[in-house]
Design a binder for these strands. Sequence first.
DNA 1: CACTAATGGTACTTGCTCGTATCATTAACG
DNA 2: CGTTAATGATACGAGCAAGTACCATTAGTG
Lengths: 178, 178
Amino acid sequence: MLDDAVDLFLAEGYASTSLDLVAQRSSASKRTVYAYFTDKAGLFTAAVERLHDRIAETAEQSAPLLELCTSLVETLHSDEAVALHRIVVGESTRFPELARSFYVAGPARSTQLLLAALRAAGSGPDAPGASDAERLYALLLGEPHRRRLLGLAPAPTPEDSARHAAETLRALGHLPAD
Amino acid sequence: MLDDAVDLFLAEGYASTSLDLVAQRSSASKRTVYAYFTDKAGLFTAAVERLHDRIAETAEQSAPLLELCTSLVETLHSDEAVALHRIVVGESTRFPELARSFYVAGPARSTQLLLAALRAAGSGPDAPGASDAERLYALLLGEPHRRRLLGLAPAPTPEDSARHAAETLRALGHLPAD
DNA sequence: CACTAATGGTACTTGCTCGTATCATTAACG
DNA sequence: CGTTAATGATACGAGCAAGTACCATTAGTG
């Protein structure tokens, strides 16, 4: 049921998603929706957090630097992840707590993993710091991700993602073979 | 009147902004609103584009590389620019044409200016290309800008912006003094 | 001054959606 | 089998907002 709800929220936006439609789509009844989640807001945050958990999980399954970067690029540029990012940004004014938990469990956590991988790889700057990891993360998304957010580009192929990850690491001096 | 409209749209979002309130705030009448712009959608796009023009204009007043970067950072991290970015992203599904024009007149245009400034400076890679300029732009926004989009950080001070611009140029090898 | 065009004010219609209440049905369980 | 808890279906009330219609007022023009 959360999955059906999230599909609608991602497609239609928060305001334009009616709970009648959610109930119908999920073959449940409004009564049940309100029993599980008290509010429309409650359903929204639960659905968004559930999806985010799933995405974050699949994005972080790799440990070595290049593989981790490729996985992040590929996962975060997917239709689902982009739509999630879009709606969290768009509703951040109305749901500041959701925005915060999104950032902590998303970009902030990924940045920490990147920092660990950078230190384990040890081929870039002598002592990579938090700002190095943040720059890396920002570039792994970069302008292609902004174009995705704005609906201006299709999802990259796995090859695109791998190439983008490698080029990004090279540009920041974390990979040899300039 | 567009200015009052944009204030409300940025603060409340598209769906939650009522035209009654816009009319009242701008000391106009709904009749006049519908006379100038046919739709709520028409008012929205007109207001957004007007604000974007103003922001883009002030962001691009500098030519030398470091000054241009500092100006971009400072302008694009302002409350107004961030709120604009947020709503264009959030409504990009409903207003794809607006999203496209935003990208062309915003990030795409800024990237072109950055490329020209990079070539004029000539202190970085031998022949800077479009991807170098895109990386630079992406990093000038970077994670601080994402935190701004999500409402997690206040606007940077001018000193913050100058420092961030310099550090970014250094990280990409466009400035000496590593 | 008279006339016209545009605008402010406001009431109204229509449609939609949140949240609640009611009733019937199903399924679990002793 | 019978009782109870949960759920599906549906209808309802209240509120809100887009877009329209009507009247009064202002301002510009000959």
